[in-house]
Design a binder for these strands. Sequence first.
DNA 1: ACCTGAACACCGTTCAAGT
DNA 2: ACCTGAACACCGTTCAAGT
Lengths: 201, 201
Amino acid sequence: MGRRSIHTAEELRELILTSTTELIEDEGLAGLSAREIARRIGYSPGTLYNVFENIDDLVLTIEGRLLDQLALSLHAVPEDECPHQRLKNIAKAYLRFTHDNPRLWNLLFEHHMQTGAEIPPWYQEKLENLLAEVERELTRLIPGASDARVKRAARVLWAGVHGITSLSTTDKLATVTTDDAAPLVEDLIDHYLGGLTNKKS
Amino acid sequence: MGRRSIHTAEELRELILTSTTELIEDEGLAGLSAREIARRIGYSPGTLYNVFENIDDLVLTIEGRLLDQLALSLHAVPEDECPHQRLKNIAKAYLRFTHDNPRLWNLLFEHHMQTGAEIPPWYQEKLENLLAEVERELTRLIPGASDARVKRAARVLWAGVHGITSLSTTDKLATVTTDDAAPLVEDLIDHYLGGLTNKKS
DNA sequence: ACCTGAACACCGTTCAAGT
DNA sequence: ACCTGAACACCGTTCAAGT
């Protein structure tokens, strides 16, 4: 027993993160276990606790990386469109991302912190950055609107797209199939934005 | 050991169901365990398996009852309104229901069948009945619309309301707080239906 | 017929002991 | 300094044995 030093501290950390990510994409949250991660990386379970505080800490780190990847995908959506079209393209990019990482994405909803543990501030920031992208386009679309109105619209759209992808991913409320997701998202955005801009009241 | 017959078979079944429901509302899915249920009802773990096939079977039964309760709540929404207003009232009833049973409701998304197990047909039927209520009002609202268009609109609304409640319940994507949910749902329905009816293209 | 409780194959996490 | 592996307190599920 004792030191092996086959991997540096950073290599080991990365090995744990990639192996865990693979494990989740393979088996879902249900198949996730500290002992299984240890088996996959060829270390004892105890080693994980030298690198991460606990499994929550490890999973939260993976979730943060996932949010970063999503942010990159959304920022990559070309700017040279009208706001309405760009919002649709952002939504499509979101859809593609969740489609490519379904189990990892589900992690964000299904994994809860153990009682007492708080969600770190950097996590909240990442989320708000994602919403900011939507808010920017909405401001372009309805220039006269108040901040509150834009914020509300961004959350409604975000939640709506989330709801559609969520229902198409979850088995239990699957009145929506995966194939339906894209047209439903288009329908939501077209009609919601239509109602937003064609306002008479 | 051996027979006790303090409870009849039906009493025991009901005892398990109510205790498990309470346990879930207390501790969430994470705190759910066969051994903890057994402790709470004062029977050995093995007894659970005389009544239910396994924990999945038990949980699915609870979920079915939950869907029945929701169906009752939605059907209880008064009919004497215009479709637009009735849809808003149905959504509000939905919101109230999820607010009153947050952890149980989350069960529907967070609890997955073990690999290989299928979701029973009665479960799907309950879901479709809920959607049918929304489809009926939409048909009244846009009488000329095709079946496909109504179905699509019903799913978009359903998913949208689900997304809002889901985000307000989940800790991990909580850019939406619980207080926000009702106004966001109103906003969604008003603008989406506005876009649906004010169609020019 | 009904219920138990030991048994089996698992968990997350800690920490003394080894190199 | 780094890593192990036994230990502790848990799991879900099965099934022979008891009344």
